[in-house]
Measured scan of single mutants.
Amino acid sequence: MLDDRARMEAAKKEKVEQILAEFQLQEEDLKKVMRRMQKEMDRGLRLETHEEASVKMLPTYVRSTPEGSEVGDFLSLDLGGTNFRVMLVKVGEGEEGQWSVKTKHQMYSIPEDAMTGTAEMLFDYISECISDFLDKHQMKHKKLPLGFTFSFPVRHEDIDKGILLNWTKGFKASGAEGNNVVGLLRDAIKRRGDFEMDVVAMVNDTVATMISCYYEDHQCEVGMIVGTGCNACYMEEMQNVELVEGDEGRMCVNTEWGAFGDSGELDEFLLEYDRLVDESSANPGQQLYEKLIGGKYMGELVRLVLLRLVDENLLFHGEASEQLRTRGAFETRFVSQVESDTGDRKQIYNILSTLGLRPSTTDCDIVRRACESVSTRAAHMCSAGLAGVINRMRESRSEDVMRITVGVDGSVYKLHPSFKERFHASVRRLTPSCEITFIESEEGSGRGAALVSAVACKKACMLGQ
């Protein structure tokens, strides 16, 4: 009897593995994704193909990295998701002549009506938060230079001027797309009239992360975010950046690689679950690469896999709870928690219980395998993109072996128990001629924006502006 049951459990697990095998990517698959990513990057950089390229390769006008001589107080704003952060950054000489960066910050959550109302409502709310922060720190009387981390696709015309191309991540505030974001912020500050600010720089969160990590390690020339969304930036040779005049030196390019796949480059790798996630998203047909990796989508992918296993009578005796059938019910943090389970399955059992399920031991094991399959594919897909960037940098610099540091931020990278190990191992397999160091950014977005502002202020002083 026991043997029969054991055989049935083994057969069930084997069927589960057959279904989950769809998520496995072979090294040849990853090399294919990497080569296609490089081709799209090239198209994004070139003037004649930029418009139709899915990977936009947006110039950021960040050319210099901090040298350690900029000092002063800077205000930093960070808008990239449902939370908005205001930070005071003091850049100065530390002990023994070292450079020191001290920060104080406060988080504000953005109400739904500000995210989806008008641009005026959104930026009025942001300036209200700045006003509140300055009151708390008794700094209303000071006109501070301000660095703005704005983590949406922007076409820069200068370091302090950028046109919002399109909202992502659930934002829909009308009247912002096609307009200068810094102008919208300046107008809102003017409307309030109770404080003055000098907006000197606007950067993407990947750029802010790279600059913040450069402060720790001067070989950091790539910034990457794996959180709600997924994106990367890197220092490109100016001669390859056709959208900006000049051939000397390097400029940081914001790849906006989340949109890779929007022209069909990933079609052969998309599964039924991916198509369902895409169809029910706020932007169907867009940001397809990001939807395979980002935390906004990972939990939902797992939920759809679990429903398939229920329908195949391989999980929960073929019956799903009402909660499990509800879109968004299986949160991405559950994926991390399930994979963090120590082996007694308590954590998995508790999560499934909150979803109205009474799982068996085998159910718990199957749910864990589903989570591992989805998150491992995410790590491997992400590795193909980064390997594409790094191999490109090595080739354009004609280096036999390139040493490089990548600064990384984002909740999936930082909080998932195995993502970074799987990701690092896969990147290294795909970049055999590179020695890569990964560092995690601390308060990256805010500190990085302030350091970019410090560079901009120093330049302005040198130019006598």
Score class of each variant (00 low, 15 high):
S54C: 11
Q106T: 05
N204P: 11
H156F: 09
Y289W: 15
A11E: 07
D365F: 08
I351E: 01
R397A: 14
P145C: 11
E196S: 10
I366G: 02
R358G: 04
M115Q: 08
G343N: 02
R447A: 14
V389H: 05
T361N: 11
S280N: 13
R429T: 15
M381C: 07
R7H: 15
K13Q: 13
E300S: 06
E322Q: 09
R394T: 09
F84K: 01
C371S: 03
G285V: 08
C230A: 14
I163M: 14
V305Y: 00
G92Q: 05
L122C: 06
H141S: 06
L304Q: 11
C233W: 00
E442I: 05
P359L: 08
E48T: 15
Y273R: 05
D217W: 01
E319C: 15
I19Y: 14
I351L: 04
V455L: 13
E339D: 01
F74Y: 02
D160C: 10
R85V: 04
Y289E: 05
S336P: 15
D409H: 07
E221N: 12
M87G: 08
M34W: 04
H137L: 06
V253A: 01
E319S: 15
Y349A: 04
W99R: 09
N83W: 07
K56G: 11
E236P: 00
V401T: 07
S445N: 13
E272C: 08
H218W: 08
G407W: 03
T342V: 03
L77C: 08
E112S: 05
Y215F: 03
K15N: 04
A11F: 12
N313P: 01
E236V: 01
V91H: 04
M87N: 10
G117M: 07
A425Y: 10
I436V: 10
N83Y: 11
T116G: 11
G464Q: 12
A201Y: 01
G246P: 05
I404H: 02
S69L: 05
R447F: 13
G264T: 13
T60H: 01
P145K: 00
E120F: 13
A387I: 02
E248D: 06
L270E: 05
A53D: 02
K13I: 15
A282C: 15
V207T: 09
T342L: 02
L304N: 14
P59H: 00
I110S: 07
V401A: 09
G444N: 12
